[in-house]
Design a protein around this nucleic acid. Structure first.
Ligand SMILES: [Mn+2]
Ligand SMILES: [Mn+2]
Ligand SMILES: [Zn+2]
Ligand SMILES: [Zn+2]
Lengths: 180, 180
DNA sequence: AGGAAAATGAAATTCATTTTCAATTAGAAT
DNA sequence: ATTCTAATTGAAAATGAATTTCATTTTCCT
């Protein structure tokens, strides 16, 4: 039941991965309006409809650019837009996911988070157990090693999940492994 | 609220990892009675009680030796032992986890599974999307590479999660990436 | 405009997990 | 062996995120 209508024309990378080493976050606003145009085109192509709600939700989602839960995105939107329901936010995020505009992530807190990213892109995560910040990385050597390991089992990898949980540089002091 | 009373004396490796390359499974019965003795000692030490239910549940769990859900273990036990409730199975698995005799695993199906394992051991998983078989591996080079990547971020890893999803050697034919 | 199909949103449902609570049991103390 | 207390049990209820339902509204094609 996943990726039912995933048929995006091209990758359209909006990646700004790895721009935030050490820092917790970096503002990085790729042309949101362009993304929105693409979505609109996609909807038209599929016979789906462009609605005021979708526009607002998608705008806010892309502006956020983070790993956000449906609930949190809803709350964010709800502050300014009382008339948009949680269900619609939820469904819009699912729509974006199935369309390849977003990716679902399930980290250790077992909350479904979404990030604006095309399905073709890939990166893994470092999650700080203290401040909750989520960093991203891509590592070709790692991907190759994964293939090698899988190969030894005759296993063909379709997707993988790799997450590091620990303490970010800013929270080093709270890490039980160091001082304390 | 995790690992509240984890204080096992020594590693006591029962690992039989990597013994099943290619094969889906290998019978591998390490001394269950020994494990049970350890648990009994642990309970005594902590002021907890040894009960008929715990004995039955733990026996069945260790005999299974798999990545099993509380529900499945309950069903398995329930066939022979109608009077043991799900809640007790659930709680016993939690107890084993907090005591370091078992590990909780959450794969993509979002069901909590348990495997008999001492807390010090570590391995990662390959999960077949077709037959559901779960293989295990350990790779030192991988662990080192992970540390290296984390290091570049000034990140201190406490735990990590790495899972490969794809098709095992026996299900290769069903892999959409090959023929089809 | 008219109409069909899609979207909305409040409420209900699902489903694994976790908690509650009254009754039972283990095992230490007497 | 009996008593006593804290731990355990298990049925039932609660939780909480994710998902579905359904009556109503909206989009957008003709
Ligand atoms: Mn990410
Ligand atoms: Mn395992
Ligand atoms: Zn941090
Ligand atoms: Zn398989």
């Amino acid at each position: 039941m996943n990726f039912i209508f995933l048929d995006r024309p091209s990758p359209l990378s909006l990646t700004c991965i790895m721009g935030n080493r050490g820092k917790h976050k970096t503002a990085c606003p790729p042309k949101i309006s362009e993304k929105k145009e693409q979505l609109k085109a996609f909807l038209r192509r599929k016979g789906f409809k462009s609605t005021r709600q979708r526009d607002i939700i998608v705008t806010e989602f892309l502006k956020t650019g983070e790993h956000i839960t449906a609930e949190d995105l809803y709350r964010k939107i709800n502050r300014k837009n009382r008339e948009i329901g949680f269900t619609t936010v939820y469904r819009t995020l699912k729509l974006l996911t199935k369309s390849g505009f977003a990716t679902e992530r399930l980290f250790a807190d077992n909350l479904t988070r979404y990030e604006p990213l095309s399905a073709e892109d890939h990166h893994d995560h470092l999650i700080c157990l203290s401040c909750g910040s989520i960093m991203e990385f891509e590592n070709l050597k790692m991907e190759r090693l994964q293939e090698k390991i899988a190969g030894e089992f005759g296993f063909c990898i379709i997707t993988h999940k790799m997450e590091f949980y620990g303490y970010c540089s800013e929270c080093r002091d709270k890490c039980p492994r160091h001082d304390d």
